[in-house]
Each structure stands twice: as C-alpha cells, then as structure tokens.
Amino acid sequence: MFSRNALRAFRAQPKVHRVHAARALATAAESVPAPVAVPGEAPAPTPARSQWKKPVDNKRGEKDIVQTAVILNRSPTLSRTATAFERAYYSYQSRIQRALYNPLPTEFYFKPGSLLEGIFMKEENERERKAFGRPNLNPNFYKKEKAVELLPGQEEPPKLMPRITEADKKKDIKSLDRKGERNLYLLIQGKDEAGENVWRLPQSDVTETEVLYDAVQRELRSPYGFGMDTWVVSRKPVGVWRPTLPQDSADTRRFLFFYKAHILAGQVRPDGKSILDFAWLTKEEIEPRVDQYYWSGVKDMLSDF
C-alpha cells in the first residue's frame, strides 16, 4: 500500500523548482513568488530533466559592454551612539539589575580591611547612590565637577578618546577618520562615457579574456589604488545594474557588476589622470553628488547605517 500511494503522492505535486523563503539581497526580483515548503508535507518532487529550463545563452556578444565597480567600504570604527530612548531603557534595566543581584562577595575578592576594598566600597556606594538616589539628595550633587582624589596605590583613570575627530570638525571628506559610527564608501571623480567629469564608484572595463574578479583586482592595484590594502569580500559580484545610456545603439547591452571590498589600511593616491578627486562618504552624502540614474542602480547596495 505504501509504495503505491507514495508514488502517486509524488506525481501529483505540481512542478516546483527551488525553495526560497525570501528573496536574497543582490538578486533580481522574481515576478512570481517562489513556493514555500510547508513542514510535514511531502517534499516537492525533482522535475524530470526535460522540464528544466533550457540554459540561457550566457555568451558575451560583440556589442556587450561589461564593467565592474568596487563598493570600497570603511566599516564603522566606533560603537553606535544610543538614542535617548535606548539610554533611558538601559539605565532602567541597569537599576533593576542592581536592585536584584546578589551583593559581591567582597571577602573573596579583597583582603578584609585592605586599601583596595576601601576604594571599591567607596565607588560602589557612589554607584548605588547614582542609581537610586539618597534622602535629601542635592540635585546638583553629580553635576558639579569634583576634584578626583587619588588614594595611594590608585591608578589615574584612563581618559576617553574623543568620538568627534579633527576630520569631523574640519569636514574633511578625504579623511578615513571621519564619521566613526558610519559606513563610509569611496567615491571618485572620473570621466564618464561622454567625457564629462562625474562622481561614481571606482570602475573598470572587463576585457574579453578576463573574469570579473580579476578586473576588480586590477582596478584596486592601479596607480591610484596602490597605496591601499584592500580585501574583496567574495569572488562573486554582490549586484548588477543594466543601464541604458542615450549614446547606445538598440542592441547594445551594458552590464555593471558590483563587488564589495573593505579598506584595511592606506589611502587613495589620486594621479590626476584616471581619477581627478576622491571622497569617503556616507550613503546620504553620496546621493547629491552622483547622477540620479546612477543612484537608482547603486542605492540598494549601500548600507543605510
């Protein structure tokens, strides 16, 4: 009975290709939503060989223009500043934690009556008071800058580095020290197809004998990129844009493949020939600088944060 029914169950299923729960980033949107597997149901049968789609002709035509672009990223170097709501939430949770937790077994960590124990208890009292207040607490108590008295044996507390750097103050868009909390992307000024100066991501043409990844590496090792240590995240592109430009004939196909890379050290050295200028910018800062048509192809690959 089993074998008879099992075969029938599998044959009855409609043709189902792959199971994709959601669309992956950097892929084209499907017009028909992919079927989702329901746990417990019979898996979709493998379609017969004749039912697969015929391979698309992927050969590069004579009039095809294939290019690669590099999304060269400087990742955030500082942790994000919490919003006012987050700060209030964390401080509230910290107070609950302080109220609920077992007290520290000081006799395990300090010799009874030692100097370090005294310092710790003093600091702990301060923290306790700061969290819960005390009777008749003067509201300006913690606003006053109190001179820190160092006890013998106590080290000077370390000073925090400023989160706003010189580059931020001077609005130096070429510096990699700017906007530590944000993702920065390299934008360069070069000549476009029509010979005009435009701002865009670094890009290069792919020759007939080259694979895409090699074109990216060639671009990153060009004279202006030679001063940088970079790491290209994957050998596969993260996205593609197929623009139609006014100067193209009807049968010209343009492909611009995007690769993500990180800068690890160094800086761009503009040579004045292939690139005229460069800038390290956040997503919002890129938009006004680039062509709107170009922006429509690029914006979804950049991080909002």
Binding site: M1, F2, N5, A6, R8, A9, F10, H17, R18, G40, E41, A42, P43, A44, P45, T46, P47, W52
Partner: peptide
Amino acid sequence: PQRSIRPTYDPED
C-alpha cells in the same frame, strides 16, 4: 534542482 529525499513513511497514509 536539489534532489528531494522522500520521507520514511508515506505522508498520505
């Protein structure tokens, strides 16, 4: 496509 592996028992049964 990935080969689908049938379950031990007939799910229709």
